[in-house]
Amino acid sequence: MAFPALTFVAVFSLYPAMDSFLLSLYSDFPGPERSFVGFGHYAELLQDPVAHQAFIVTLGFVLLSTTLELLMGTGIALVVHERFKGRGWVRAAVLIPWAIPTVVASQMWRFLLNDQYGAINAILFGDRVDAYVPWLADPWMAFGAIILADVWKTSSFAGLLVLAGLQVIPEETYDAARVDGATAWQRFRHITLPLLKPALLTALLFRTIDAFRVFDLVFVMTQGGPGDATQVIQFYGYKTLFTEGRVGYGTTISVTVFVAMAILSLFYVRTVGSKLLQRESA
């Protein structure tokens, strides 16, 4: 029954990935005839300072954006989990950012952050135009800006998963605590949070995978600048592979990203995934 699905995945994901891996073992120069270099490109990657910097930028991005997204997402979920009038509209409103194509959302943020006619400057400084800040010109603020855009765009995705987790916590669990006189914070800390753990982990898993592969945002907003301050590893891989035509080295970068992600995710799969499958035998 799983055959069609596995065929799809094999033809359009696994085979291409294997093919790419093989490409990463062949030289880029000289000429179109490629020679086998084994893991030469991987050794090169270990000594490439630009790649190291890109890895650090990516890690920083992943850590900060996923943390913020989980916090915001939990906040959103707690809010829309409550019963109030017009809840449907609020739920729809918080899902809107997620439904806007990333390329469009990134253009929007570039527009909002413009140093001359950007809305953010207008909100902060009004008519005092000489105080307007060129947000994307400063290496740190540019880095902050892509995180802001990502958090805005995808917090609701995390929120959705957390909300689903909240909904399966039975109301009775809280009643006992209320009788014991626990405060709202204590109830959240000692009942909600532990029960939310699986939902948070699932959200964390899918968000981490996505954040590691961030590309569109950087491509549209900063092109990796200024001074490579926002150059994430996927963007570096794209430049090497597609712009410079260094197929071997470019795929090496991407394959390495994949391996790094796989190792990181192993932890999640062991905690979330195995639990999931074990329960069936119980």
Partner: peptide, 18 residues
Amino acid sequence: YPIVSHILQRYFSRVLAF
């Protein structure tokens, strides 16, 4: 050229931004 250009872009952008 694409490779040379990327190296130049990084160099100039770094010295101007930092």
